[in-house]
Design a protein around this nucleic acid. Structure first.
Lengths: 100, 100
DNA sequence: AGGATAGGCAAGTACTCACTTGCCTATCAA
DNA sequence: TTGATAGGCAAGTGAGTACTTGCCTATCCT
């Protein structure tokens, strides 16, 4: 659960994708590919970006909506808010990692 | 720089170590090993924990102080606070990942 | 000094993961 | 229908990494 979130954030390309979606929400796969290439100089295939988006969606950081042949991607920052709270608040720890 | 931070958080054992240090700061390597085994059921070698602590220290999440033959580890939550801010604030993005 | 404790260094192994390659499906426009 | 566009599925490859094993250094106590 939380493991998916942190693993998703561990890759720099995925973090750049989050940057792009934070700036302009609702982009399609091809739009994201173009902007990664143009603005960030990332020579990366469409399939690679698609796989990154799947990871981000599994982590709950990206939500998608389909319209016709287009699939729009939206950023969801809710999971990010709980990251810092885990170690800042000396509360009962999340039993997430106790039994991997 | 920020890459070290996210990579450090990507491992569940390291996150559990942060949990332990959040609960009791200033533990030694052997104390951390014992608590990981006792309270979390993690059968992990001392060297593995030592390597994890090195990763956490490189990420700025753990600071160490040496006293005699003991090395105490303290949690530093400062880097965590800036994680959520990156995508919550629609500001000029950190140019960190532009040129990997 | 000698043993015990706390920690460090380095090479090897096994596994994960990012990325590519190749092909396939679905929607829209002519 | 035909072609073009947007996206998906799956196997293979190469690099990174978590962990082990073995040995070494430093500090403390008797």
């Amino acid at each position: 659960m939380a493991d998916d979130l942190f693993k998703a954030l561990a890759d720099s390309t995925r973090r750049t994708i989050l940057d792009e979606l934070a700036e302009r929400s609702g982009q399609t796969l091809f739009e994201i590919c173009a902007r990664l290439s143009m603005r960030h100089g990332l020579g990366i295939s469409r399939q690679a970006v698609s796989q990154h988006l799947a990871v981000l969606e599994a982590a709950g950081l990206v939500e998608t909506r389909r319209e016709g042949r287009y699939k729009f991607h939206d950023l969801n920052t809710a999971p990010l808010r709980r990251i810092a709270e885990r170690w800042l608040v000396p509360d009962t720890p999340d039993p997430e990692d106790s039994t991997p």
